[in-house]
Amino acid sequence: MKCLFALTFLALAGQGFAADDATIQKGEKVFDYWCATCHGPGNLPGTVALQTKYKGAKPALLSERTDLIPPVTKTFVRKGVSIMPFFRKTEISDADLDALAAYIARNNKAPTR
C-alpha cells in the first residue's frame, strides 16, 4: 500500500493537462488487444474478480473506472496481481502503456496524467 500512496503523490505533483484524443484512442486499442480479453464485459476473469472484490462499490469493468490514475494502472501492468501476469515491453511498450493508462483514466475527475 505504501508504494501506491507514494505513486499517488507523484501523480498529483505531475498533474497538468488531460491526454489528447489520439493518445486515448491509441490507449483504447491497446486495452482492447491486451486487457479486454479478461476485463471486457461478460463472464471474464478480470471482470468477475473485480465484481467480487468491490461488490459494486466500483465498476467491475476497468474501462468504466474513474479512480485509476495512470501510475496505479502502470504498476498493475508491470507487477501483475493474483493470476494476472505482468506484461513485457515487447508486448506493451512504455509508450503504449502511457496511452493505455490515459485511456483508463479518461473519465477521471482528478488528473489523467
Partner: peptide
Amino acid sequence: PSLEMFSIGARSPYNPTPGQGH
C-alpha cells in the same frame, strides 16, 4: 481464442482469496 480459462484461479464468489497462479 479466449482467456476465460483463467477464471479457474481468479477471484470469484467461489474463490474469494485467489492465489498467484497454478
